[in-house]
Amino acid sequence: MAGTGTDLSLEPTALTWPGRVGAALSALRRAPLVTSTVLAVLLCSAIFAPIVAPHTPTQIDVGNSFSPPVWHEDGSWSNLLGTDKLGRDVLSRLIYGARVSLTLSLLIILIGGGSGTFLGILSGYLGKTADAILQRFVELILALPTILVALVFVFTFGTSFTSVMFVLSPFLAARFIRIIRGETLTVRERDYVAIAQVIGSPTHRILWRHILPNVFNTVIVLATLEVGHLILLESSLSFLGVGVPPPNPAWGLMVSDGREFITSAYWITLFPGLAILITVLSLNLFGDWLRDTLDPRRRQL
């Protein structure tokens, strides 16, 4: 070997914050067209729901109940996708539903994913007793059936937006801790961390400057994939009547509203389900693409 022992080019590249952000932005430019478009449309309709939606989602108009979508003979342009049993506009409810689903999932990602990343890095970097205890705890949480725990939780604290948030966050945090910890363990062994330790950088600085930027890819990929997962879970809870309470226009709730009338008014059930399917599918495809681009090693994520 002619080179010196500190040849960093043999190591996986050490990423810094500007490099990290730059890489993410340049990757976005090559994002798959269809899924990113779908997600953009979704995001816009969630943000601008009051402008985009043709009607107020909770406006009851009993005289106009069970009006079919526009392509039926007796459908009308006023209610493109028909109305439900209370005469509420399905399309408007779908648009506001995007708001509910996305807000809820993003909040959970922020709380659960954020704390999970934090604890995962600490656990992986510091190791020892705290790590061992935390890992047992993570295994425990991951071993619990989510919906069942949610049922008990809702039983005690009632159905509400915050209930869903609090019951799903720990599950998400556990998944983040497990994966980010593993990632931290490998980053910790790299030369640039060793060098930082040798020159006496304080721990918090090492975590912020060296560890976090290098597990950031995984955090982003994981977050994207988990949003889809959360939307499915949240809509299942809402469908069962233990999630977001009515009259909120949650997609799961809308499917549940229509199930009695599935033979006569299929549109009440069909469209919110399709909305969930398309959203989650796009998120999964996007997440997969993101993973392949940013983090090709973690194919199993």
Binding site: S235, G252, V255, I262, T269, L270, G273, L277, V280, L283
Partner: peptide, 22 residues
């Protein structure tokens, strides 16, 4: 693989009922 991951099971159930039973 992708549909299975993305489809809400309660909705799939209802759609199957609609198609095969109704």
């Amino acid at each position: 693989a992708f549909l299975g991951q993305s489809m809400p099971s309660f909705w799939l159930g209802l759609m199957l009922i609609l198609l095969f039973a109704v």
